[in-house]
Amino acid sequence: MLSKRLSNITPSFTIGISSKIKKLKEKELNIINLSIGEPDFFTPDRAKEEAIKAIHNNKTKYDLASGLNELKKVIQNKLLSENEIYYEVDEIVVSNGAKHSITNSLLALLDEGDEVIIPKPYWVSYPEMVKLVGGKPIFVDTDKSNNFKVTVGELKKIVNTKTKAIIISNPSNPVGIIYREKELIPIVEFCLENNIYIISDEIYEKICYIDDYKSTAAISDEAKDITITINGLSKSASMTGWRVGYSASNREIADAISTIQGHLISHPSTISQWAAFGALSYCEEEMKAMVKIYKGRRDKAVSILKEIEPLSFIYPEGAFYLFIDISQLKQNMDYNGSFSVYFADRLLEESKVAVVPGIAFGMDDYIRISYACSTDELIEGLNRIAEFVHKIKNE
Rank of each mutant, 00 (worst) to 15 (best):
S3N: 15
T14C: 12
T14N: 11
E26T: 08
N33D: 15
G37E: 09
F41V: 11
I52H: 09
K59N: 10
K59Y: 06
G67F: 02
K73Y: 11
I75L: 03
K78L: 14
E82S: 11
N83W: 08
N83V: 01
E84N: 15
Y87V: 10
K99Q: 11
D111E: 14
D111I: 00
I118F: 01
I118P: 08
P119M: 09
P119L: 11
K120G: 04
K120P: 00
G134K: 02
F139I: 01
V152S: 01
K156C: 06
K157I: 08
I158L: 04
V159R: 06
T163V: 00
I167N: 02
I167M: 04
N170R: 05
P174H: 09
P174V: 00
I178L: 07
I178S: 06
I185N: 11
L192C: 10
L192Q: 13
Y197K: 15
Y204F: 13
I207P: 05
C208Q: 07
Y209P: 08
D211Q: 11
K214C: 13
N231A: 07
K235G: 00
S238G: 10
M239S: 03
R243Q: 10
G245S: 10
G245Q: 08
R251S: 14
A256C: 05
S258F: 00
I260K: 09
I260G: 03
H263D: 04
H267N: 07
I271H: 09
Q273S: 07
F277S: 00
G278A: 03
L280K: 05
Y282S: 04
Y282A: 03
E285H: 07
K288D: 13
M290C: 08
I293D: 10
G296H: 00
P310F: 07
I314S: 02
Y315E: 12
Y315Q: 10
A319C: 09
F323G: 05
F323K: 02
I326E: 01
S327P: 02
Q328R: 12
L329K: 06
N332M: 05
Y335N: 05
Y335E: 08
G337D: 03
F343K: 10
R346S: 09
L347T: 05
E349Y: 05
K352F: 13
V356K: 12
A360K: 05
A360C: 09
F361Q: 04
D365T: 06
Y366K: 12
Y366H: 15
C373E: 13
C373W: 00
E377D: 15
L378Y: 07
R384Q: 01
A386Y: 13
E387K: 15
K391Q: 09
